[in-house]
Computed example of a mutant assay.
Amino acid sequence: MTDNTARLDHVVLWVSDPVAAAHFYEQAVGLEPLRVAEFKEGAVSFPSVRVNEETILDLAPLTMAPRMNMVPGGGKSAGHPVNHVCIALTEGGYDSLRARLEEREVPVSDHGRHSYGARGPAVRSFYFRDPDGNVFEVRYYEEG
């Protein structure tokens, strides 16, 4: 049996304007912004948005790339291709998010059905891109 105690803590997204990105994720996606005021004041290097109680998305400015030297070549990760990040919601949350994105004229894909994920096949899914081109999949699973 697999030890399933690991949890996704955060994903770092490279963005051109962290404050605008935080606004997009708050207004269009419905995620809670974190440390935006502190970022504006210069007290922290980047803001974040909360996906759930255990997971955040860090919104790292592209200007940080040259300082990403914790591993050799770390700065070259800016612009490194990541296919997409997937967020699982309830059916109601899924429908609400899609409606908010469409209200803001954010292009969304057609609905996918039964694509495989962490909890098996999802009932429905769709994709969208944030203003910096990061691709997100949104899905929901059968509740029960």
Rank of each mutant, 00 (worst) to 15 (best):
T2S: 01
N4A: 03
T5D: 06
R7I: 01
D9M: 02
V11T: 06
V11S: 01
V12A: 06
L13M: 06
W14T: 00
W14E: 01
V15A: 10
V15D: 05
V15W: 01
S16D: 15
D17A: 08
D17F: 02
V19S: 11
A20L: 15
A20D: 15
A22I: 06
A22D: 08
Y25E: 08
E26T: 12
Q27P: 00
Q27L: 07
L31T: 03
E32L: 04
E32G: 00
L34A: 06
L34Y: 09
R35V: 07
F39C: 13
F39S: 11
K40A: 13
K40C: 11
E41L: 05
S45F: 13
F46L: 13
F46Q: 12
P47K: 10
S48R: 06
S48M: 03
V49A: 11
V49I: 02
V49W: 03
R50Y: 00
E54H: 08
E54C: 04
T55E: 00
I56C: 05
I56Y: 01
L57R: 03
L59K: 12
M64I: 11
A65T: 08
P66R: 08
R67Y: 12
R67Q: 04
M68Q: 10
M68K: 13
M70Y: 15
M70E: 12
M70L: 14
V71F: 12
G74K: 11
G75R: 07
G75W: 06
A78L: 11
A78H: 08
G79T: 13
P81M: 10
V82T: 07
N83C: 01
H84T: 08
H84G: 06
V85K: 05
V85R: 01
C86L: 02
L89W: 05
L89K: 07
T90W: 15
T90D: 11
E91L: 09
E91H: 11
G93F: 03
G93Q: 03
G93H: 04
Y94N: 04
S96W: 01
S96L: 09
R98M: 13
R98G: 13
A99S: 09
L101N: 13
E102H: 00
E103P: 11
E103G: 14
V106G: 05
V108Y: 11
V108M: 10
V108Q: 13
S109E: 08
H111K: 11
R113M: 04
H114P: 01
H114T: 01
Y116I: 12
G117S: 03
A118Q: 06
R119D: 01
R119H: 06
G120R: 02
P121N: 14
A122D: 14
V123Q: 00
R124M: 05
F126Y: 11
Y127A: 07
F128I: 13
R129F: 07
D130E: 11
P131W: 00
P131N: 07
F136A: 03
E137V: 04
E137L: 05
E137S: 06
V138M: 09
Y140W: 14
Y141N: 00
E142M: 05
E142T: 04
E143Q: 05
G144R: 09
